[in-house]
Design a protein around this nucleic acid. Structure first.
Length: 195
DNA sequence: CATAGGATTATCT
DNA sequence: GATAATCCTATGC
């Protein structure tokens, strides 16, 4: 099992290539972002252990689901020891199981490629079937709702750049993605500067 | 006053 | 045209 008791920025790159499974649908992560605690103004946990951010202060390996722009369900994997807050936002991935279910949930046209199924946090959330009721659920084993499996060797390198869609701490290099992966969401602001 | 949940507009493709 | 760690409002404490 992957050690999630360190801070999210140390763990996030290592989660690339790992497979997150929720029920019958599984996604191989190709793009993630790290959100820290008190030191990160862009993090929900910046203002302390209150509201929904309380989940981020829980045990490492907990799932944190929040509503983005009223329509998206974005999923995070809580990191750091209990009492400290940080999390890895799952931004994009490749369907490795249950692609047919994901396609139905997305309502994706038959002529559109599978690479679009989990591209972007909102789309990944829909593909996995994330629900607010999943908030606070733990990562478990094969018999549980959620499961996280070890990453396989990635042929391409890991790229790093600024996070997307935020208004504070916009320059922090906390977005990580795999090179040459068609499932990674659009670059948008900035370009990778380390790999 | 704090929290929970649904929604819009600016930015990027 | 599609997407997004923001923003606003309703409800409960």
């Amino acid at each position: 099992m992957i050690d999630l008791s360190r801070r999210a920025d140390e763990i996030a790159p290592g989660l690339l290539g790992a497979v997150i499974r929720r029920g019958p649908v599984a996604v191989r992560l190709t793009e993630v972002e790290a959100y820290l605690g008190a030191d990160d103004p862009a993090s929900h946990a910046y203002r302390g252990e209150r509201g929904r951010a309380a989940v981020m202060f829980g045990a490492p390996g907990t799932i944190y689901v929040y509503v983005s722009y009223g329509i998206h369900r974005a999923g995070n994997i809580v990191c750091s020891p209990a009492g400290q807050a940080s999390a890895v936002l799952m931004r994009a991935g490749e369907l490795v199981a249950g692609a047919d279910i994901a396609r139905e949930r997305r309502g994706l046209a038959p002529d559109r490629p599978d690479t679009l199924l989990a591209k972007g946090p909102g789309n990944l959330g829909r593909a996995l079937g994330l629900d607010l009721l999943d908030n606070g659920q733990p990562l478990g084993g094969p018999g549980d709702l959620f499961e996280l499996t070890e990453p396989g060797p990635g042929p391409g390198g890991i790229l790093v750049g600024p996070r997307i869609g935020i208004t504070r701490a916009v320059d922090a290099p906390l977005r990580f993605w795999l090179a040459d992966e068609p499932t990674v969401s659009a670059r948008r602001r900035g370009e990778p500067w380390r790999g």
